[in-house]
């Protein structure tokens, strides 16, 4: 039974299409990879699923229920958690307080009568950053901050976790431990959807992989199937080695940072109209 259903989603920024009729499903209890070249629209897909970006058209459903128009915070209450490619830790708070805020938000008024200190320790232990508990979050290394975002998201007890390039900034042994953590989370019955560039990690950990290119799903299957898929090889190698054409570079910024910084304006369009 699929938990998440992305149905024919299109996202356009001005005249550029970042996500172009993307279709995919994520099954409950799996670790699913979402891979693709830079600018393929992966982060934009995440923004659409979490509600930070309204799709131009298409549907997103969770458990068969349409959530396309649901506000961000309500989706979180329905069990969608995420981490960010560009860090969104609460920099002025300590690592422990980052998790504490998440627990406070999640508990609502019920949390007033409950000490959360044990929960915080537990979360930080789980992702392996307990040593940093009293550091300010803007002073810790990038990899650690990514783990902090994961711990913070876990504090809201999500069913579906969206991880945006979680392993960047981690060294080899940390990445290995992180892979085990992902399997552990899946073992607990959580569903993980992950954008990731570390192919070893993706191939070792994921049950299913979706490949996104130019905003469209071009392949899906098990790691072995994806590895053998000639279309995927072409899409990937075409970008990894060869210098990118100018147009493709522009796409990169629209799809990735564009979708990241796109909504950071105070209005929803940044195009100066004539």
């Amino acid at each position: 039974m699929s938990l998440l259903h992305v149905d024919d989603v299109v996202v356009q920024f001005g005249g550029v299409t970042a996500v172009n009729h993307a279709n995919f499903e994520v099954d409950e209890g799996t670790v699913t990879g979402l891979i693709g070249p830079n600018g393929a629209g992966k982060t934009t897909c995440f923004n659409v699923i979490t509600g930070l970006q309204t799709p131009t058209s298409g549907r997103v459903s969770l458990d068969g229920r349409d959530i396309t128009r649901m506000p961000v915070h309500r989706r979180s209450r329905k069990g969608i958690g995420r981490t960010f490619q560009r860090l969104e830790a609460f920099g002025s708070l300590t690592v422990a307080d980052n998790v504490r805020v998440a627990l406070d938000i999640h508990d609502g008024f019920g949390g007033l009568f409950r000490s959360v200190d044990n929960d915080i320790d537990e979360m930080l232990e789980l992702v392996g950053i307990a040593d940093y508990a009293n550091e300010r979050a803007d002073s810790i290394p990038t990899g650690t901050a990514r783990l902090l975002e994961l711990a913070r998201s876990l504090a809201t007890d999500p069913r579906l976790l969206l991880l945006d390039e979680p392993s960047s900034g981690l060294d080899e042994s940390e990445t290995e431990a992180f892979g085990e953590l992902l399997r552990h989370l899946a073992g607990e019955g959580r569903t993980v959807l992950m954008v990731e560039h570390d192919m070893d990690l993706v191939m070792n950990v994921c049950d299913v992989i979706h490949v996104l290119d130019f905003g469209t799903i071009i392949a899906q299957g098990t790691p072995a199937e994806i590895r053998a898929n000639p279309v995927v090889q072409k899409a990937y190698l075409g970008y990894e080695d060869a210098p990118e054409p100018v147009g493709a570079h522009a796409r990169t910024d629209v799809g990735d940072s564009g979708s990241d910084s796109g909504p950071d304006s105070d209005d929803d369009t940044k195009v100066l109209a004539l």
Partner: peptide, 9 residues
Amino acid sequence: AACGTLGLD
């Protein structure tokens, strides 16, 4: 954005 995705209205 993070507060929103953690469920804060």
